[in-house]
Nucleic acid binder design. Sequence first.
DNA 1: GTGCCACTTCAAGTCAACTTGAGGTCAAGT
DNA 2: ACTTGACCTCAAGTTGACTTGAAGTGGCAC
Lengths: 140, 140
Amino acid sequence: MQDLDIAQVSRQSGVPASTLRFYEEKGLIASHGRHGLRRQYSASVLERLSLIALGRAAGFSLDEIGLMFAEGGRPRIDRQLLADKAEELDRTIRRMIAMRNGLRHAAVCPAPSHSECPTFQRLLRAASSGRMGTPPKTGR
Amino acid sequence: MQDLDIAQVSRQSGVPASTLRFYEEKGLIASHGRHGLRRQYSASVLERLSLIALGRAAGFSLDEIGLMFAEGGRPRIDRQLLADKAEELDRTIRRMIAMRNGLRHAAVCPAPSHSECPTFQRLLRAASSGRMGTPPKTGR
DNA sequence: GTGCCACTTCAAGTCAACTTGAGGTCAAGT
DNA sequence: ACTTGACCTCAAGTTGACTTGAAGTGGCAC
């Protein structure tokens, strides 16, 4: 197995070195030695980083991701967990679609003021009742 | 106009008093006097809070929301801004749908391991290429 | 008039996922 | 041998939207 130093991993994965160190500290990846000071990673770390990126994109926290490949060697990705996350994502998507439609309407609504537009009013009520939840943060 | 004290506003809006104070400090709402120490709000603050909730649900930051009803008296909600936000939301929705579908597949995928499932592999590549972005935080 | 208790202020803490900065080390090139 | 520069560690800072805690105040019921 060919080793990569941190700069190579960073370059090939696009993940900053500071993040690699951070992930290592969190136990998400492991370096298996040093060349001088420099961490050496085995090539498989790249796959690991992809998995982490995937998990993050799916809405898992770093801690959750850590749990997935914690015990039992190979990534123990629980299918139930995936299904649950898919459901959660689906609920979020529904809310966001409602929101998007409302916004689109409001953007073209002919009513002189939003306070006279029924669609806007409906949105307003939905939002203040908490039905809309707290929103996505369109990532970095 | 009948006044409400902070406890009444909190109860009727569901927004914690600490948050009301925080919003006031940020200039998002205004109290127009005190009864002893207690802030007095006019009833219109409830509508204001709905607008804030709506804005948050749509993905606006508190600062952005502040700008909307900053200048010029009545809520100056820019239609272009709404349309832009709707577009942004839409892009996010697309990513999330791809993610959800991928997760659903992975959850039922018959391949012995995810590393042998083409769909999973595809997702993995998408995620690590950054195409998936950073995810929604399904609100509190 | 006195005690209660919900309110007040202000500073600091929280959370997640990193980033930044200061000060140090080491392998490699000249 | 010496310089260079990319790496190292460890602590602290960042962002956004709040929450929490300590210490103080004042209206109202008794």
